[in-house]
Design a protein around this nucleic acid. Structure first.
Length: 476
RNA sequence: GCCCCCAUCGUCUAGGGGACCAGGACGUAGCCCUUUCAAGGCUAAGACCGGGGUUCGAAUCCCCGUGGGGGCACCA
């Protein structure tokens, strides 16, 4: 059987994290079985349609690396792939359903409540309208919707790949609207028609659709269509247990990227939220996931999104980059003033220490300018260092440095280490004041000699002289 | 309110009757390495929601309870 899966977002203007994971799982399922991955746009809500949202969907999928085989701009013979362009199709099938008795016209006003708390369904008087009554109302051009006629008796059972067999009493199901009075279908109708017409084999969607699935099954049965494989996905929540929602300020996929997370790290992380490979591997590329992803290993319970773990995984992906790749990604985050230095060299120092690309500017700010630090900065127990010793060392080291011709990390380290040995200092005791004078901050990417190499001889000596002056003033 | 689903360390998870005094990862703490900070290595603390069954034996199967989530729109 040819596997066909689809990602069917509504154009809201951004890629919700839950949607991204649905897209990813659908994509992976298709790829794993050499199937087809389809993009379909569900724009049946005229009020929620956001202009330019289509572009956001394209961009999001591209950023994520999820290439679709069929879609609005990629005809595969099952189009159109935009629901607002399929209106006549829905009308045709709605008409069919009407004739078969699986649906009926409802002329009630929008506000008319059809359900009560303990009797959620079947209060609609229009259900009992005679043909003549209907004809009269239609002739009078009363506006109406088309509702699904749910059987009064019996129950409906369906099987979901992750949740197993689920049975619901038909009495619990409501006569949902299939076709709205504006002529647009609801999701509840369009998804069934389209999934069938587009020959979708695995319907993958969020768990929130679990409770309406029996109604979809009834529709498939009415039409005599084959029921697809259902794969409902557990919800993604926050660590406090509440919903992960853009409206509540939680980031979208695009937001995460601008927060300094790599798309491939986000994808990797999302894949693990609700699915596990069954072994201890956690680092995955998309290509690897395409080979091993399996529906059978999807979890039932909802998963909390952990920024801590995403951040760690992002660091792993960053470290897995080649220096060239990292340099290209990091450069936009470098302050302009850094152009005076060898930024590639800086990238080398920074790569292993970067968890998010957005951490970079802060990490590097001292290159631009040494902050006005306190002399307590020269106090460091582990390096056996304090301001007094620092002054001695910095003063002693200046002539040595001035004499150095080959100004690179290895050579500088060699010379300074030897200087320490000669004077009876631990290497750390010599390096600490130098590193401090060069940067003015407590932690730097790279040690004293690495910083000195990047800063160059002249600037390094200038900063050390500044440090000496600062110490002298403070200690007098 | 009614219906449906879920339940292993703080978090993501492995586990599908004996191999489990429950394994891995993130986070946390400590140590090692070390030219600061990271990275890396090692170690530690940390969980089977509760109660009944079934069974020689249950984290694993069944029931009840509790807790959490989802649905009940002319939204998807």
């Amino acid at each position: 059987m040819m596997v066909r899966t689809r990602f069917a977002p509504s154009p809201t203007g951004y890629m919700h994290i839950g949607n991204l994971r649905t897209a990813l799982y659908a994509y992976l399922t298709a790829r794993r079985h050499d199937g087809t991955f389809i993009l379909r746009i569900e724009d049946t809500d005229q009020e929620r349609n956001v202009p330019a949202a289509l572009a956001a969907i394209y961009k999001g999928l591209q950023l994520a690396g999820l290439e679709y085989d069929e879609g609005p701009d990629k005809d595969g013979g099952y189009g159109p792939y935009v629901q607002s362009q399929r209106l006549d199709i829905y009308h045709e099938y709605a008409e069919q359903l009407l004739e078969m008795g699986g649906a009926y016209r409802c002329f009630c006003k929008k506000e008319t409540p059809l359900a009560e708390d303990d009797a959620p369904v079947r209060r609609d008087p229009c259900r009992l309208l005679t043909d003549t009554q209907i004809a009269e109302k239609v002739a009078a051009e009363e506006s109406f919707v088309i509702r699904q006629r749910i059987p009064e008796e019996g129950s409906t059972t369906f099987t979901d790949h992750v949740y197993g067999e689920i049975t619901v009493e038909n009495a619990q199901l409501d006569d949902q609207v299939l076709l709205k009075s504006d002529g647009f279908p609801t999701y509840n109708f369009a998804n069934v028609v389209d999934d069938h017409l587009m020959a979708i084999t695995h319907v993958m969607r969020g768990q929130e659709y679990l409770s309406s699935t029996p109604k979809y099954n009834l529709l498939y049965q009415n039409f005599g269509w084959e029921i697809p494989e259902y794969v409902h996905l557990p919800l993604i929540i926050k660590e406090d247990g509440t919903k992960f929602s853009k409206r509540l300020g939680d980031p979208s996929f695009e937001d995460l990227v601008s927060m300094g997370y790599l798309p491939e790290a986000i994808i990797n992380y999302i894949a693990l939220l609700g699915w596990s490979p069954g072994n201890d591997q956690e680092f995955f590329t998309l290509a690897e996931l395409e080979k091993i992803f399996s529906i059978d290993r999807i979890n039932k319970s909802s998963a909390a999104f952990s920024f801590d773990k995403l951040t760690w995984l992002n660091g792993e992906h960053i470290r897995a980059l080649s220096l060239d790749e990292f340099h290209a990604l990091a450069q936009p985050y470098y302050p302009d003033a850094l152009n005076a230095y060898d930024t590639r060299k800086i990238s080398e120092l920074v790569q292993v220490r970067t968890e998010r690309l957005t951490d970079i500017p802060e990490m590097l700010s001292f290159f631009e300018e040494v902050p006005d630090y306190e002399i307590e900065m020269y106090e460091h127990k582990k390096s056996k260092c304090d301001p007094e010793i620092s002054l001695v060392i910095l003063s002693g080291v200046v002539p040595v440095l001035e004499g150095i011709e080959t100004w690179d990390n290895d050579h500088l380290f060699e010379v300074l280490k030897a200087y320490g040995q000669e004077k009876g200092y631990k290497t750390g005791t010599v390096m600490w004041p130098i590193r401090t004078a060069l940067s003015g901050v407590g932690a730097t990417p790279g040690g004293a000699t690495a910083l000195a190499e990047v800063l160059g001889k002249k600037e390094s000596l200038r900063r050390i002289q500044d440090g000496i002056a600062k110490l002298k003033t403070a200690l007098e």
